[in-house]
Design a protein around this nucleic acid. Sequence first.
DNA 1: TGTACATCAGTGAACGCGCGTTCACTGATGTAC
DNA 2: TGTACATCAGTGAACGCGCGTTCACTGATGTAC
Lengths: 220, 220
Amino acid sequence: MGRTETTQPAPSRRERMRAATVEEIKQTALRLIHEHGSAGLRFADIARTMGLTAPALYRYFADRDELLTALVADSFDSLASALAATRGQVAADDLDGRFLATCTAYRDWARGNPDRFALIFGVPVPGYAAPPEGPTAVAGERLMAHLRDLMADSARLGRRGNPLVPDGDEAVLLAWASVHGFVWLEAHGHLGSLDPDARDRLFAVQTRVAAATAGLALPA
Amino acid sequence: MGRTETTQPAPSRRERMRAATVEEIKQTALRLIHEHGSAGLRFADIARTMGLTAPALYRYFADRDELLTALVADSFDSLASALAATRGQVAADDLDGRFLATCTAYRDWARGNPDRFALIFGVPVPGYAAPPEGPTAVAGERLMAHLRDLMADSARLGRRGNPLVPDGDEAVLLAWASVHGFVWLEAHGHLGSLDPDARDRLFAVQTRVAAATAGLALPA
DNA sequence: TGTACATCAGTGAACGCGCGTTCACTGATGTAC
DNA sequence: TGTACATCAGTGAACGCGCGTTCACTGATGTAC
């Protein structure tokens, strides 16, 4: 087995071209969402931007909803991957360090992908209902699983919990809400009055307090 | 001075009718925003819902942007009023109590007005730039002033600050971000897995921790 | 109190525009033999 | 290696539709004398 010999055969040239076009459509859609908002996403705009005619897109996505579903699912995956990538960077038993690394990855991803961040956590695009058991739900579950893992590790290592919150899952939820609140406000310009240094410093404080909320450490 | 004898004379019947229509337009717009999102707000929809023809609306708002600006400014005012209303309900020197009351009012307002909440703190509607020194900016400043007041009172009463955050304004910002994060996630259905009782309990914990972040108290 | 005039809310017809979507088609790429 | 056929990406014309916006107008309400 010199090459990767999985069940499906190697993708043909046509399949690769098609995948590349799908990717370009998604990227273009994200750019247009950045400019006009997710509710203002138009098939005709995407085609025009790509130098195609509008009917060509129907070969790739049945309609706008199918494209949006793919974008949301991708965003979940991307965020989950960014968080997972921090796993190996800190010693497994350094829970505080892993929590901090996760929070930082969360923040960095949100700042680097504000539109996808909004796609995940913003107001749902009206008129678009995510399929209940579709890729979006599955990808969302993956993200939550990462956070749960962190708490499971915490319990396994015999760390104390937050006495105010008997349930570990709930404690990490609060910590997540704190960090998320900061990150959301920052990513969408609501902390504009602070200079970057101050934001970094405050984010560090916020994560330390959040860790304390989850029972990982006590504030200094 | 038996009646309110201000500079402007009592509003005429016509002026009152006009004000009522303006109000109905705003309410209708909010309902439609709830259904179709802020980016999907259409003048024609509003008119149709109100039983008017579209051109009639041009007597009240020059265009969609002017209406949106009014809605955002109103939302800021409404939230600021809801917070201000808590001022008299708790003893002035009970800072912890006032902070808690403020947080609760914040949460209640957001749950009661999720669309206006999104209008204020969500992703800005693209293609719509708020006038830099317009009513929106002024109303936003009013909200921030309320939070600053709370901190100023804290300093005046000689309460200790959070040693990790030398600046009181910044400390209250972190507390706000924590509470805001929770409230946002809850208002937009991202805490759907929790039953109402659990959400209430967790919100109480979140506010206590947030108060501690601002240096108002230490977590138990 | 009545009359003549001014103001203003709202109508309905009309316009140009861009959207989503369908359809029959062309031409290039891949496959079977 | 060549040929005949199948697959598929993309085109361009066409359609119906609803939008924003303008315009001249009607009729009701308010004001001056």
